[in-house]
């Protein structure tokens, strides 16, 4: 979106959330995916810039054993300071893990001697009892970034649900690429029947168009029709089909 259009949108909207949603609806992506991803990235950037040494957040992160798989790699990619932030964080987590493993090795022989009750329990349940995991290495809390991401996602879904009561937003939504299926499912559960019907019908029209583009893309791969030019919307239809099913690439 060009700058003048962005300014125009912001000037006509007194509600900043509405202005933000209007911008997201102009992008070629699910608006909820796009806004949530931007919000999560902002949080990670801010965290790496000024909260790496925040003791409260560090404790919270340590309880979750750092970040989840997806966000750990996202944080690593976001560290633009030569990896010093990630180094500080993971030195702390590694030190804690080393302590946990040392403690486990120290007390394992004692626990082993007392493990007759585990075997007895396994015998009573008629299956082998699993051997001990090191519970201190397991996450005891949700990944901090996952929490931020979920909160942001819920907020944006609520914003869009509220804004869809307005006729101008319905028109914007109809022109946009629309929501991906995972977000649509969440939205169906939280809006009234009339909005649900609007969303389902709009999505149906978009999917029918997408299916037509995919069919054309496939047809033009057939030898007999190879000379027909593939339109831009046909060429990326298969990528948009993936994005509709699972959301934008994370």
């Amino acid at each position: 979106m060009n700058a003048s259009l962005r300014v125009a949108t912001l000037l006509t909207e007194s509600d900043p959330n509405a202005a933000q949603m209007a911008q997201a609806l102009r992008a070629d992506a699910c608006p909820i995916c796009a806004l949530t991803a931007a919000s999560t990235q902002r949080f990670i950037d801010g965290f790496l810039y000024e909260s790496v040494n925040d003791a409260t957040l560090r404790e919270e992160l340590a309880r979750a054993q750092g970040f989840c798989y997806r966000h750990a790699w996202q944080v690593l990619d976001a560290d633009r300071y030569g990896g010093v932030g990630v180094t500080i964080l993971y030195l702390d987590f590694t030190t804690r893990a080393i302590e946990a493993l040392r403690a486990h090795l120290r007390y394992a022989p004692i626990v082993q001697r007392l493990s007759w009750w585990r075997r007895a329990l396994g015998f009573l349940r008629r299956r082998a009892a699993p051997h001990a995991r090191i519970t201190a290495l397991e996450p005891r809390a949700l990944c901090l970034v996952c929490r931020v991401e979920r909160e942001a996602e819920a907020g944006y879904l609520a914003d869009l649900a509220r804004l869809l009561a307005r006729a101008d937003f319905r028109a914007r939504y109809t022109e946009s690429r629309g929501m991906c299926l995972p977000h649509l499912r969440q939205m169906f559960a939280s809006v009234d029947a009339e909005t649900r019907l609007f969303l389902a019908e709009t999505t149906r029209t978009k999917i029918a168009t997408l299916l037509h583009h995919i069919q054309e893309y496939n047809r033009k791969h057939i030898w007999d029709f190879r000379a027909e030019p593939k339109l831009p919307e046909e060429q990326d239809a298969w990528i948009r089909a993936i994005a509709f099913q699972v959301g934008e690439k994370k």
Binding site: L181, F188, A193, R196, L197, A200, E201, T203, R204, I207, A208, L210, L211, I214, Q215, Y217, N218, H221, A237, W238, I239, A241, I242, F244, Q245
Partner: peptide, 26 residues
């Protein structure tokens, strides 16, 4: 993306059936 496009053609057709059923029920 021919392989993926071919596979997703069926998925999108199923999406349409599902949405039609949902619209009728709503």
């Amino acid at each position: 993306g021919l392989g993926t496009a071919t596979m997703y053609e069926s998925v999108l057709a199923q999406n349409l059936d599902g949405l039609d059923e949902f619209i009728r029920a709503t």
